[in-house]
Write a protein that binds this DNA or RNA. Structure first.
Lengths: 135, 135
DNA sequence: TCAATTTATCATATTATCATGATAAAAGGC
DNA sequence: GCCTTTTATCATGATAATATGATAAATTGA
């Protein structure tokens, strides 16, 4: 469902959501079993989009820049995996709305809305409250 | 949501669903704006999996091998895009069931089930009855 | 039989995704 | 100031998805 990159981003943010203070890339990479430099680029982009805060130097690392209960999955995933486009026509048509419906449109719409709502509404805090995320 | 290849497969089958008798690859490729040889391989695989029937020679072409009202989207998409795997843990864990739930599992399950059910239950006939599929 | 037509298949090219390795830039502590 | 630690960035490689081009194999109809 998610691209590998988006999945890494989500797991990384959830990890940061249950750790306070800055966490180093190397530590996260080892804990989450994600390639270090690859994770580094992902975290950097998340910092640029305002999801994370980064600091260099000896006491540096990454941490959430937004409270977990205000951070929605959409914010984390969007830079890597445009879930908005999932709502597009199942048959790949550029123009497919309620007015000009293709065969699949009507039936597909409810399904696509369910998926989109999940990412748009679910917060990091809600996921963390469900169960622990150790790995 | 679907891979490019799976989307081509679905559009091709819907096209065949509203045409009787064998249709040539070249005609379909032009009508659907899909690369000809690429479509050819897709149709061949659909024939091998029993979705389509193929015939060579002058009166050859492809047509549905199963009645449209018994042909489910899952049958068309599965060879190209394993939607079954979409039901796997959102966080990419190999082991994630109801018993050993990760943080995302409980909330994600309903969403994943909705998507899986759509492909598993919807038939080609149902899509075609909704509206015409010209392109 | 033979020629035309069509699917089947192989080889290869292109593009995007995923990942690695090395280096630069910034920050803190001595 | 200088060394260590850390993120930031660049260059490159590996792999899979997507697509193209050419040829082989099968079928039909004359």
């Amino acid at each position: 469902m998610l691209s590998q990159t988006a999945e890494y981003a989500l797991r990384a943010v959830l990890y940061l959501g249950e750790h306070t203070g800055p966490v180093r890339v190397g530590d996260m990479a080892q804990a989450l079993q994600i390639p270090r430099n690859y994770l580094s680029k992902i975290l950097h982009l998340l910092a640029r989009t305002g999801v994370l805060a980064s600091a260099r130097g000896k006491t540096g690392g990454f941490q959430l820049a937004v409270p977990a209960d205000r951070l929605r999955l959409h914010h984390i995933i969007a830079p890597f995996d445009r879930i908005d486009e999932r709502r597009r026509c199942l048959l790949g048509r550029p123009q497919c709305s309620d007015r000009t419906a293709c065969a699949a449109h009507t039936r597909w719409k409810d399904v696509a809305d369910t998926v989109a709502s999940f990412f748009r509404e679910t917060t990091v805090a809600e996921l963390l409250s469900g169960a622990e995320v150790s790995v």
